[in-house]
Simulated scan of single mutants.
Amino acid sequence: MYSQPSMSRLSLNQITTDNWSLREAVDGCVRAGIPWIAPWRHKVAELGLNESVKIITDSGLRVSSLCRGGYFPAATAAEREARLDDNRRAVDEAAALGAETLVLVCGPAPDRDIDRARGWVQEGIDRLVPYAKDRGIKLGIEPLHPMYAAERSVIVTLGQANQMAEQYAASEVGVVVDVFHVWWDPQLYTEIRRAGNRILGFHVSDWIVPTPDLLLGRGMMGDGVIELRRIRQMVEEVGYQGPIEVEIFNKSIWDLPGDEVITTMKQRYTEYV
């Protein structure tokens, strides 16, 4: 018998209401009594970092994470250096916003050499860790579903993410478990146990059948086939008691009124997560 998650852990990952500005998303969370928000960097940039910090601070919301850093691989050394510089800016933004974790979407290979690209991911994290540590920010490696390997990330299993994270202190680098990306993995529960106190984030949505779109095809919880409660129970059993972010890429959901999306999100969180 699974218990229901506490509403005190619910976080709106801002991409779920993508048509809202950060100001609108913050106001929507306050109206709905959602205590956490996970901003995206492009939304912060639209408003400006200082104003974003002020709006979130004044609202009383807490920041569960900042999306996103990463994208380390690039064809030239100069490009890789520029991406590392951007990751340092992302760390600074996370610190200013009060997030403990910067989510890393690690990036695709710029050519056909996927092994080399994974080496560049490792190198990028190596170089970013000291900077992030000095600013009190943890780096959360988020593995993406293998269908994203060519476009978004060469880190495609929780096992790969664990292997990378284990090269650093648990206070520096961990993993983000997003059910949409890992639910299919035969080693999922083994790797969740392996991750243990390195789990820095837990993201929920659902896998719709048939899958309507490669990128914009995530479903609201309960509309698909993912064993959401079983996965949540496992991350809790190994020690994760942090915020639970609802992160949904779906244009039909984006086109709905934001307050309607949040109302449904709260209901489905209680019913299915």
Rank of each mutant, 00 (worst) to 15 (best):
E93Y: 13
P130L: 12
D185K: 09
L144C: 06
E151H: 13
G140H: 02
M164I: 15
Y148D: 11
K133C: 10
A170C: 08
E100G: 15
R135H: 10
G174L: 05
A169G: 15
V91Q: 11
D134W: 07
D86A: 15
A161S: 12
Y148Q: 11
V105Y: 05
A161C: 10
Y148C: 11
A94Y: 00
L158A: 08
R116F: 12
D178R: 02
E93K: 05
W183L: 08
P130V: 12
I114R: 14
A132L: 12
Y148W: 15
Q160M: 12
A149D: 07
D185I: 09
D178F: 00
D85T: 15
G140F: 00
Q122S: 13
Y148M: 13
G140T: 03
L104F: 07
P108L: 10
A117S: 09
G140Y: 00
D85N: 14
P130A: 12
Q160I: 04
P130Q: 11
I125E: 03
F180W: 11
N87C: 15
H181M: 09
R89L: 14
A150N: 13
V176E: 02
A132W: 00
A117Y: 05
R83Q: 13
M147H: 14
I125M: 02
V175I: 11
G159R: 09
D178Y: 01
P110A: 13
E166Q: 13
R118E: 09
Q167K: 14
E151I: 12
L97M: 06
V176H: 02
L128K: 07
P143L: 09
T101G: 03
A96R: 10
E100P: 05
Q122K: 14
D178G: 00
R83P: 07
A90Y: 01
I155Y: 03
H145T: 07
I125H: 04
H145C: 08
V173P: 03
I125L: 04
A117N: 06
V182W: 00
D185R: 09
M147K: 15
F180D: 01
V129W: 05
P110D: 13
A150V: 13
L144P: 06
M147L: 14
Q122H: 12
R83E: 08
I155F: 08
I155M: 10
V177C: 02
V173M: 08
E123K: 12
V182H: 00
W184F: 15
L102P: 00
Q163V: 03
R135Y: 10
A94K: 04
E81N: 13
C106N: 11
R88K: 15
E142S: 08
V173G: 07
S153M: 09
W184E: 15
A94W: 01
L144T: 00
P143M: 10
W183P: 03
V179P: 01
Q160T: 02
L144H: 01
T101L: 03
S153D: 11
E172C: 09
D126N: 09
E100A: 15
V175N: 03
R88N: 06
G98P: 06
Q160F: 06
Y168E: 02
